[in-house]
Design a protein around this nucleic acid. Sequence first.
DNA 1: CTCACTATTGTGGATATCCGCAAACGGCCA
DNA 2: TGGCCGTTTGCGGATATCCACAATAGTGAG
Lengths: 204, 204
Amino acid sequence: MNSIAYIIDDDSAVRDALQWLLQSRGVQCQAWDSADAFLASATNELFGCCLLDVRMPGMSGVELFDRMRSIQCQLPVIFLTGHGDVPMAVKALKDGAFDFVEKPYDDNALVDKVLAAFAHDERRIARAESVNLVRQQLAQLTQREHEVMQRILAGKLNKVIADELGIAMRTVEVHRSHIFEKMQVRSAVELSQRLATLGDTGAT
Amino acid sequence: MNSIAYIIDDDSAVRDALQWLLQSRGVQCQAWDSADAFLASATNELFGCCLLDVRMPGMSGVELFDRMRSIQCQLPVIFLTGHGDVPMAVKALKDGAFDFVEKPYDDNALVDKVLAAFAHDERRIARAESVNLVRQQLAQLTQREHEVMQRILAGKLNKVIADELGIAMRTVEVHRSHIFEKMQVRSAVELSQRLATLGDTGAT
DNA sequence: CTCACTATTGTGGATATCCGCAAACGGCCA
DNA sequence: TGGCCGTTTGCGGATATCCACAATAGTGAG
């Protein structure tokens, strides 16, 4: 899995300069001259980070950022801007942008930021994968199994669960066994821990 | 528990204006004319948010921010600055500042930000309290109980735990019982869930 | 209609967990 | 030295969990 810096800027000189800089440091790049072009060609699984010009004809960088988030693209975004605008920077960062850099940028600092964004994205992907695994396992559970699991996680005894659902204890045991099998755990404790990963946001 | 806006600014005109604005909206305030004065008089339990001038004689707002974090003061900080400085805003936000506002500020917007910071701090306090409770309970456990608990959370059977620790199963059962009592849970599942709150960062 | 899946229940036994009752040993404090 | 705490262990019983074997029933797909 290779990290790629996705450059979106309408100015070909800027694109070329960024590509030259990053590639000279061993960073793979892909460049687009508009937000629309980027969205059209690469909406699927991306990995790395985005270098996004704030001011562009057509869809602005900020709009593209919103659009990406609305289609579940969580790629870290480094904004590039020519005119220092504090409120815009603040809003972008509070909305989850990874960084906000003024042009002219310092080459070394920018490369560092890209690498930091790469590292950030690697952690994000790792988290997303483990969360996805759990989601897939949860999706395999039947409705009844969900009802039972929920009560297991509430620490209830099979007997109590059976009473609540109006079924025999033996049936609960069977469901319980199926749940453990599908979730690939061997105890209620492991089940609880596996599901705990869903709630975690994993800060930093 | 009342939220308070802690204003730190060397300019008395700014302090007065902020106090007037916030108090007219029903927000309680306390003001200091320097970072040192603030640190000296109010290092303990604060609740609400900080309005911090970036540029001040002596310790700057940014330095005060670092200092606060280093002494475990997690009060949300809203920076106020006269001269738009994007890199500084970006750094502050990436370091965990709540907001970064340029002067002259918009009254309504600033009040909104303060209220948002209050809400943020309320959530932080709530999280911290539940985490503290768990930490206190954990502190009550003896060394041996910790060893047993760790293995319970690994999903191990009493029998296995006994073997690993070289003690009788009955002893493990006793420890187990004490652990549950001290942690105020009634099953390994609840124990696991209670400890899961420690790992959570609770984003947003 | 038959097959696969889900839900349901029973019997009976092997394990595990939970607990009260009892007790022994070492360390620390008054 | 006696009490308190932590650690240890045993006995025995009440519950609970885990599972193989076996069976009934409804539902949707092919």
